[in-house]
Design a protein around this nucleic acid. Sequence first.
DNA 1: GTGGTCTAGACCACA
DNA 2: GTGGTCTAGACCACA
Lengths: 212, 212, 212, 212
Amino acid sequence: MRKIGLVQTKDQIADVLREYVISGRLIPEQEIIQEELAEQLKLSRTPVREALQLLEKEGYLERLPNRHMRVRATTLDEIARALKIIAEIEYELMEVILARELDISGLNEIFGKYMNACGAERIDQARIHEFEIHRAVSETTGFGYLANLHQRLLAGYPGYVIMNSEKGPADRVEGIKRIMEYLILKKKPELKAAVDKYYFDLAVCYGILTGP
Amino acid sequence: MRKIGLVQTKDQIADVLREYVISGRLIPEQEIIQEELAEQLKLSRTPVREALQLLEKEGYLERLPNRHMRVRATTLDEIARALKIIAEIEYELMEVILARELDISGLNEIFGKYMNACGAERIDQARIHEFEIHRAVSETTGFGYLANLHQRLLAGYPGYVIMNSEKGPADRVEGIKRIMEYLILKKKPELKAAVDKYYFDLAVCYGILTGP
Amino acid sequence: MRKIGLVQTKDQIADVLREYVISGRLIPEQEIIQEELAEQLKLSRTPVREALQLLEKEGYLERLPNRHMRVRATTLDEIARALKIIAEIEYELMEVILARELDISGLNEIFGKYMNACGAERIDQARIHEFEIHRAVSETTGFGYLANLHQRLLAGYPGYVIMNSEKGPADRVEGIKRIMEYLILKKKPELKAAVDKYYFDLAVCYGILTGP
Amino acid sequence: MRKIGLVQTKDQIADVLREYVISGRLIPEQEIIQEELAEQLKLSRTPVREALQLLEKEGYLERLPNRHMRVRATTLDEIARALKIIAEIEYELMEVILARELDISGLNEIFGKYMNACGAERIDQARIHEFEIHRAVSETTGFGYLANLHQRLLAGYPGYVIMNSEKGPADRVEGIKRIMEYLILKKKPELKAAVDKYYFDLAVCYGILTGP
DNA sequence: GTGGTCTAGACCACA
DNA sequence: GTGGTCTAGACCACA
């Protein structure tokens, strides 16, 4: 059953803005003014301020000496490195799954849905399931420190590329299949390589997506 | 910009259960036990109870003499009549838009996205946009009494059919186009007929979806 | 016989407040504070909160960005449109009665009492019976989705006008008689027209009631 | 020179609480009550709440269904894996330094001070410099996404072990020397191995520190 | 500081 | 046994 819980206003704001930055709708060096934003969203400044601070921590925004906020220029190189780290974290979480022999039936179920959606060429559905597969990894471990990190990093560039890349899920289907296969077979070195390759391919997709 | 606001736990619960009832995952006469549900969702009884009461009001659940709650059997006839009323309400809201000459650029924007998604055969994307078009009608009027009703009714069967019918958005694209056209041209009688026909078709889709 | 069942505190609270709003005792933009209200009524905050949420859903109250509740300004136009929708729903329910050949002896009985009260010029008694006639329609169908809607909408403006309009039940007696007659004779188009006219007259009464 | 900037109250609170958790002064499952904490610290609830949310994100605290916060039980295994990730990130940042041929004179300066303090057996001074060396890595790159992550992760277990481990900086002096040497010589594979080993040793120190 | 929402736990009413 | 109602206490959001 779908996860139900507290949804905070500030997280909703952060989600929207993060997407705008990643997708280029907000361009580097563009200033973000708290009060304007609050007015546009018909919200008070408190949750807006908290959302901006979160995005600053995540590296999407930066604070000028005059304390204004603006969109940070993020290089492709930087994103590629970040994706490398996410791959590292995701593999680490998978090692936890293997080490503790955790139940991966939830993961498998989503994987099944993903394969079906790919087969039926329901691309947008497949994108959602692809994203959920990754999220299910950290949900399976329930591993505070790293799982939290994984979820937050995932919501950034990887999430955007998965949901929007022209090279659709079909182009990554082999990668996902390999990952699931090696995870089930507990072949660690192959799993590591497969996860690394998957995220490397994502980086390539992002490069294509946003141009040189 | 995406709508941001307070998301109440009880509404999330209601959304999940409503979908389960409509989709048949919860079958008629099946009993819903407050406390069990609360435990499954790891929530306290208060929001669960409020969600159940909401669904009772909406007609998805009914209360037995012993105060237990169970899923109501809903006939196709009943759903068809409900869809007729929604069509009526939606047209009424459109009349408000015309009478007050409200700005429909938001509606038009979503309509454009819908047409694009249809053209690109991104079915699931088109479904989402189709649903948003309807929602945008009541958001444009900001008309408390009826708009509220519209939004809530929309979240029920219409929403489910739009998001899940085998006959996809492409089959309804002509209907949507006609509605938008007549709305822009302010041709009231034709608009009324187009809205009625659109919802009649939805009822047919639901019948096909769930079988006889 | 009058339906007997559990009367929830929150519904009682909602009934009182709804009448206050409709009658103008609570004026638009006036703020309603949960805690104050709870204290005045010597109740805890929970049922009060639930009543306020109900009234928000019904469009009598609205939530400010600071989460306070206040009385919504409702235009005559809006009420007129809502009455049109109730007429639509009531007719739809009558169609169900006809289609399923449901037993309308209960309806007839109340109609008889209403006529008697009118004849005897017992105005207040007639008002009550007039209201009950409408309610009996949805009780006859026992039709979850729409019946619920009907009952709730009925409790709003129509109920208030019926119970309070200067132009008393005597002025609407012809309308009621026509409706019952066409219902018994199963003359659908005439019935539809009669129901529409009845509610149109109610809207006029409300306009008169509250002034231009 | 030490970076000077705005120090936010909430970060100071978070720093204190983080140390309490890591050091065991706050034990797992112990509940943290916002209001109590605010009162003890003679601060308003807002910064306290923000600090608690930060620590929840970092995995030191967790939220119970009743919305209370409590200290999370963190296993040694979990910490070891987190340290592996930090090593990965720190190496990635060093690669950036090499790729962009950034000026590492600041890093070298701190390294010099560290070596002096070690030589003079001024242990506490050495601990501070050791910590600063790491921090200087992400400050040299000024690399939003990863640098931020590095700084925050560094403030957790690594920082604590460096500042408190019984096996003092002297025991890690060889590790630090190797890292600096390979960084200057731009020997990437050796550098990677050296960083990994350094953080592995830290994990061992923490294990010793807290017992089996 | 105020109001809204949720949790936990208690008791009552009904079948 | 199930649901309704209430209290006390916690957190979230806004001013």
